[in-house]
Amino acid sequence: MTQSSFRSEVLDGVRAILPLLLAAAPIGFVFGAVAGGNGLSPLETFLMSALVFAGGSQFIAMDLWTHPASWAALGFAALLVNLRHILMGASLERSLQLFRPLQKLPALLVMADENWAIAEARARRTVLTPAFYLGLSLPFYLGWIAASLAGALLGALIGDVAVYGLDFAFPAVFIVLLMGFWKGRETGLVLAASAIAALTVHKLVPGAWYIAAGALAGLAAAFIPLAPKEQVA
């Protein structure tokens, strides 16, 4: 790859992640503020965002936080919330053909919903280059850490983000991305299965099991249209 196309791929990635970074920054700020309220020092908040880098499990951890912190309960909760990453990683791996082994490792380690969803969407339209993925992931990683550190330092100043609808930024972005994956009735079946399973489990089981349940139900539904023709009603 030439120098100029490397640069343009990185810039394309930065441009693609920018709206998501804008959506994530207030959430990161809120996380930092909540962590401060739970007695985490700014340094501890910074470390959690840098080492865990998973918004969902960090928020669940704040829900479950105790004094002293229970590493077993928090580690298990993080595992549950991020079970979807196993499926996401399996799916992403197929889009990483241009990545050298040493590039794949950091690419997977910073995989989050946002950069993953854009990378997968990119891989459907064209090839996913390491440069594009770098442009996606580096600003997002640093932005998440900076936002949560800012929240830890200045958190007391902010009011309730729900008033401005900012808490809705994430679902809204995910819905827009979701619409881009529509490929007809087969997709409808997958979405219906995922939604029904997620809602049922969300109602019955506390914690983040619903995400894994929905993902697995959607995956199972994908096999239905592939059944032999005679069995189709």
Partner: peptide
């Protein structure tokens, strides 16, 4: 292979389902 292709929409749907419907 084909089933793995539905993972992205299935995950996104599961994440937003409680917000969208409950």
């Amino acid at each position: 292979e084909k089933a793995l292709g539905v993972v992205p929409p299935a995950v996104l749907m599961a994440v937003v389902a409680p917000t969208a419907f409950a």
